[in-house]
Amino acid sequence: MDKVVSFHQGTLPLLVSIPHAGLRLTPAVEAGLVDEARGLPDTDWHIPRLYAFARELGASVVVGEYSRFVIDLNRPEDDQPLYAGATTGLFPATLFEGQPLFKAGLEPSAAERAGYLEAIWRPYHDTLTGELARLREQFGYALLWDAHSIRSVIPHLFDGTLPDFNIGTFNGASCDAALAERVRAVAAGAQGYSHVLNGRFKGGHITRHYGAPANNVHAVQMELAQCNYMEEVAPFTYRDDLAQLTQRVLEQMLVAMLGWGRERYPA
């Protein structure tokens, strides 16, 4: 396989995970996609660019290089559903709008998908596991921010228009309540933006699996409505005029997270 994970090691007890920005396809997936999927519409577009400030802050950053159409890094390896109602699995079969992802009979084989699990999914999670362990060893705790984005209107997945900032803590299980409140307070104070805590998106596998407050690992998922930094239709253009404002709020959230960590775990 080509490079499957990009990883930058930082100097702070914060790891930013970006699992759904990848654009690479395997030959089998590329050959089988329906025409509507060839533009990779369900990608978390431009998220590494949007979060470029995180590296400057001193955070570690891990980015998946392969498209979620190959394998979804934010789903458990046993492919158990995370949400009630319409959703997508470890090996997506449909687009977010509900249409089939692959032409009939051209889905990757079971053997090919087993290979994707070992060669793409596992290295990403090995990187998460290793870096969180390093941070906890060095600092006594670790903070995980799982960064996502999605179109603001997808009737197949949710009703109406999505709030701008969708904060997920698996109903409080993945991080300390005071930390969640720090992040929520930043969103609440951001003029012109809407937010929700544990609404439609409560956190996927990464947030649920790695967030372990009792073991001093605190995880938060951010599902950002894409209208806040880009055009939501092809060619999915990055809007710097929108992104700069949104970046300021996201940066304030990460700074608040780090501030909470310093107070909760004084050196």
Rank of each mutant, 00 (worst) to 15 (best):
R134E: 13
V153W: 01
D78K: 13
N216P: 01
L101C: 04
T127G: 09
A86T: 08
A110W: 12
G261R: 09
V5G: 00
L128G: 08
F158Y: 08
P48N: 07
L50A: 05
G85C: 03
V249D: 02
G105S: 03
V61F: 09
W145M: 10
S149T: 00
Q221R: 01
L144P: 06
E30T: 01
T87Q: 15
N198T: 10
L162T: 00
L117C: 10
E263R: 11
P76K: 07
G105E: 01
L143T: 06
P100E: 02
I47S: 07
H8P: 13
L132K: 11
D164T: 05
L224S: 06
A59Q: 08
Y51P: 00
D126I: 07
H209W: 09
G211R: 13
G204E: 06
G211D: 02
F170V: 15
A212P: 12
Y116L: 00
Y116R: 09
V233S: 15
S109G: 04
L82E: 14
M222S: 10
N198M: 08
R264S: 14
L73S: 09
A133S: 11
D42T: 01
R24C: 01
L132Y: 06
A84P: 14
L73Y: 11
G85F: 10
L179H: 08
L101R: 15
I120M: 15
D240E: 15
V70G: 00
D79L: 06
D126W: 06
L250V: 07
S174W: 04
R248Y: 09
F170L: 15
G259C: 03
R122L: 02
T161W: 11
V63A: 01
V70D: 06
D146H: 07
I167H: 05
Q244E: 14
Y193H: 08
A133W: 08
Q226D: 11
W260P: 06
S60E: 02
G199E: 01
R136S: 01
V249L: 12
L15M: 04
P108F: 02
E107G: 03
D78Q: 10
V153N: 05
L157N: 02
Y83E: 08
S174R: 06
A147P: 05
V220N: 12
S149A: 04
H20E: 02
T88I: 15
I150V: 10
G192K: 13
A110P: 13
N171Y: 12
A219N: 01
R38C: 08
N166R: 09
Y229M: 00
R184C: 14
P41C: 03
F139Q: 13
A173V: 09
V5A: 04
S60D: 02
L40A: 12
A54V: 12
D79W: 04
E65A: 10
L15G: 03
E118A: 08
E251K: 15
W121G: 05
D42K: 11
R122E: 04
Q191N: 15
H46C: 01
Y124D: 07
V63Q: 07
A114N: 11
S17G: 10
A52N: 14
L179T: 11
P266I: 07
F7C: 04
D72M: 08
Y193N: 10
Q138W: 10
